[in-house]
Amino acid sequence: MRAAMQRFARNRMAVLGALVIGGVVVLTVTAPLLYPAGAFTLAGPPLQPPGARFLLGTDALGRDVAAGVVQGARTSLLIGLSAALSAVLFGSLIGALAGYYRGAVDIVLMRLTEFFQTIPAFLLAMLLVVIMSPSVLSVIIAISAVSWPGIARLVRGEFVALGGREFVLASIGLGASGPRIIFRHLLPNCVSSIIAIGSLLVASAILLESGLAFLGLGDPNVMSWGLLISAGRVTLRSAWWVCTFPGIAILLTVLSINLIGDGLNEALNPRLRER
């Protein structure tokens, strides 16, 4: 683990990404202190350019864009992390069952996975949100529902590869139960791959959430970057700042998470570098 940390620290881009995300997390935590009134408050005159009073300007209703960006960070991280986490848990479970038991279980679960993989992810997410009516929970469910198949396939592949190894055969020979082999012996061996892919999933979940909010399918009671951009789009040519700053926030966050993901991948699977 220590060696992995050192390998990660040697990857300058990954460290940079981690610093940016660290900054975002700090902003998220301090948001209630920085902007106690919240992001929807009509703070001043509409469409003020960035300046001393409003660091990033105000939008068409006179809401502080900076407050929106900070509050939006919270929404994006919350939804990104929860959606990625639930997708990882569900995907791993499906993949593990299919990869360990093979046979009919494998066929059924993998056909199910492929079924989800063949439907365009964004359209399915949109449909699910519309059916469940937009709220934070429904957005998380929709994003997890379109994100788990990748994890499931990955975990199944790892399980199939590990299935014939001596330590697994030994465990079977010693009479270990299926769940014990899956959770004690197989899963820990592919956790590094899951972490690497899972971290990238956070980035794609944030992008999906912004896309949904942009199309008006986010929770209307919660500020989010996508919502800010969609509200600022109509004034793009007269007030560039309204959608530029949330756009930069999305770009930086998603890029940083991707860099971290790459760094983790290299750090946890050092043999990849030699290929």
Partner: peptide, 22 residues
């Protein structure tokens, strides 16, 4: 949606907590 967001603020002033449903 913009109007709804404004109404949420306006009604907040008189102690009515408006939840938007789109």
């Amino acid at each position: 949606l913009r109007q709804a967001e404004y109404l949420k603020q306006a009604l907040g002033q008189i102690g009515v907590e408006l939840t938007l449903r789109s």
